[in-house]
Nucleic acid binder design. Sequence first.
RNA 1: GACCCCAUCGUCUAGCCAGGUCUAGGACACAGGGUUUUCAUCCCUGCAACACGGGUUCGAAUCCCGUUGGGGUCGCCA
Length: 532
Amino acid sequence: MPAHAEHAAGGVPGGRSAGNTSRRRCRRGPIHGGRAGDDDGITRASRESHYERAQVQAGVGEGQEPLRHHPREAALAEAEHLTPSRKTGSGGDMKPRVRFAPSPTGMLHVGGVRTALYNWLFARHQGGTFILRIEDTDRERHVEDAVEVITGGLSWLGLNWDEGPFFQSDRSELYRQAADKLEAAGLAYRSAKGAEEKGEALVFRAGAAEVAFSDMVKGEMRKPAEDLVDFVIMRSSGYPTYNFACVVDDMDMGITHVIRGDDHVENTFRQILLYRALGSDMPSYAHLPMIHNESGQKLSKRDGAVAVTDYQEQGYLPEAIVNYLALLGWSPGDDTEFMTVPELVERFDMGRVRRSPSRFDFRKFAWLNSRHVQNTPVEKLAALLGPLVAREGLEVKDEKWFAALVGVQRERISLLSEFVPASTYFFRDDFEYDEKGFRKFIMKDPGREVLRRVVERLGAGEFTEHGVEEMLKQLAEELGVGFGKVAQPVRVAVSGRTATPGIFETLMLVGRERSIERMRRAVEAAGTGASG
RNA sequence: GACCCCAUCGUCUAGCCAGGUCUAGGACACAGGGUUUUCAUCCCUGCAACACGGGUUCGAAUCCCGUUGGGGUCGCCA
């Protein structure tokens, strides 16, 4: 890993600076006038030149071009240049390098997952690199479990990373060096003001220049100098603050596009100041709108299920989570909503990300999950459901039988967790009868009569769906009643419920012997008037 | 409060940048109906939105300004 100072000062090819500089220069003119790589960065940076550069970059002064009319498109157009065809210059690999940089809090939040997903989709769509970096500067002392929650969650979702995970806690030297350079250049000063403990923090001089950037989703963003104040970059404890570590790392890792939640826009202004001071061009930015809860606020732990593991437990499929989260703030432009992961990768486009926040809608999420459940091959679904069945103490004695069961229940559940409760009577005989159903279909005519005759005939004929169908239909005819009058008593007797899969499939799944036993038992219960 | 961002059915959204083809399209949810052995699926129908006010224009959901509303950020947290 190259030391960051060399990287910044030398304009090392392969990093972000070489390619972006020329791009910016030709596309933006003076507003974001290229300059990184033209000088030695922090080694020669005096405070004045820092400010001058900033002014030029910010478009302050006479004869400047007004802001682009469609800044968002400009930012997007720039991102488009990161295509293989543009690779030929001396800049080396021009493909985007993005990162997901969560802090190890012990859970992977859906908002974080959405951020990770958009980074991942952006990278995969363009053939770029997706990097995982753990932001553990010092607050949380590197809890191993917390990291596994993140890596495990991303893996489960299929969001594989190409580099990392890197840990900020392992990179102190890098921050130290960068901080020293800034201090030596007079761009930062020591101060004990507001110290929580003894000792001095290193404070960065915000300077007197406006900061502006073109966001890929929000368009032109700017902040006047007077709204930017000095801020701490190195704590008195010797650890870097978030903004500082983030910039140093993004530079060092050659991050070309920073894609994160828009709760970071204020940080972005400060971070841009740091790029300038460290003599680097800045990356492109995409600030994603927040995901809100049902009351319209930023989704937080208080809103119930927000961790991926919560959804995992409730029986959401990873592809459904990915699909739903992708749709929260982005759409492909036509009416397509159900999409597989490869389709998402194919169609994802930062230019179609919305600027306004969206609410998390559990109903639609569940609906989408049901679509994915139905789209999942039976064998795969059976493998997923097996453990859930075992967890309830139920036993799968026959894999083929289980696959058949999964096949009939697949279209009836939207969450995997619904499978077991909906299927218990297929596993065990000690179910109770639905009170109303028992009275209506078994106590009343022709309930008992139907069951007596079915018991007689079921033992004899061919026990196949077709054979049973013939038999039951003939019986309905004999009794001069509709088919429902025959099917419902059988259904309640065999399952205890009024709603089950098709009666023939249900009978096949329960089996001949057990079906007969259950119907006898129902007749008996009806005789004693007990339905329990 | 200051600064920043946002604003189409209850929700997710298409349309907006390149104004007319929009009596605003789709989806979820909801209501009604149909298919059907129950459930589910499926099909049909319905309900339901351009926040408000100005301006520009022959013409505005689309462009501009303002208002209102909502959100975000204001840490030696990330």
